[in-house]
Nucleic acid binder design. Structure first.
Lengths: 102, 102
DNA sequence: AATTTATAGTTTGTATAGCAAACTAGTTTG
DNA sequence: CAAACTAGTTTGCTATACAAACTATAAATT
């Protein structure tokens, strides 16, 4: 693969992963077994609505799993990365690194 | 800067540079003194309209310079990266690398 | 006990932007 | 001279990122 091909590869980046908010979410999820919605909210500073929307998209694409339960009497939403999500993140990183060093 | 801060830095990425088509354009421009519009068109496979639009945005932000002239009797549009553009690309890469290795 | 405030999200509305189709303007070719 | 090609730009559509408004429950305050 020559230099130009590495660069044009940028156009094939997975847009779902490329979005900064979702890239952050996946990166955090890749490092923990499980993460709470509210933790991500605090960490990222994103609005609940925005975070909820990104969460739904990642879930719909099968990159994360979401479980809703209760802690005491309060709703508790937890997120986990799936094998597909881990692969998507890895692939994304590989493509980007390749283009970066080009 | 701790791990979380590196990751949340993703949210501060320059969206102008982050867009794959423009990242490609800047990356190509960073490696050559000057590049023709038609060259980028062929290389990227982007439609003329799309390319023109991205070019205008990069120019408006001062990241590239565009000169229009004639080669023989045909219009010739050439693009060059500016110091500001080079800096924007460098900063973008640094931020992303930092988050990637986090 | 009733009202306010806080928690934990979801839904809705808006504004931006990426993309290609359609258009403009000039040039070459048959 | 008409058709086709070159080199871009403008326009219109669609998708999406974002926050404000909303829902629902629980805790705190008066």
């Amino acid at each position: 693969m020559n230099n130009d091909e590495k660069l044009t590869g940028l156009l094939n980046l997975d847009r779902l992963v490329h979005e900064p908010a979702r890239l952050l979410m996946l990166s955090v999820l890749a490092q923990a077994k499980q993460v709470e919605f509210t933790y991500l909210e605090t960490l990222s500073g994103l609005s609940k609505g925005n975070l909820s929307s990104h969460m739904s998209k990642l879930e719909a694409a099968g990159l994360i799993e979401v479980t809703k339960s209760f802690r005491g009497k309060r709703p508790l939403t937890e997120l986990r990365i799936t094998p597909a999500g881990r692969k998507a993140l890895t692939d994304y990183r590989r493509q980007l690194s390749s283009a970066m060093q080009a």
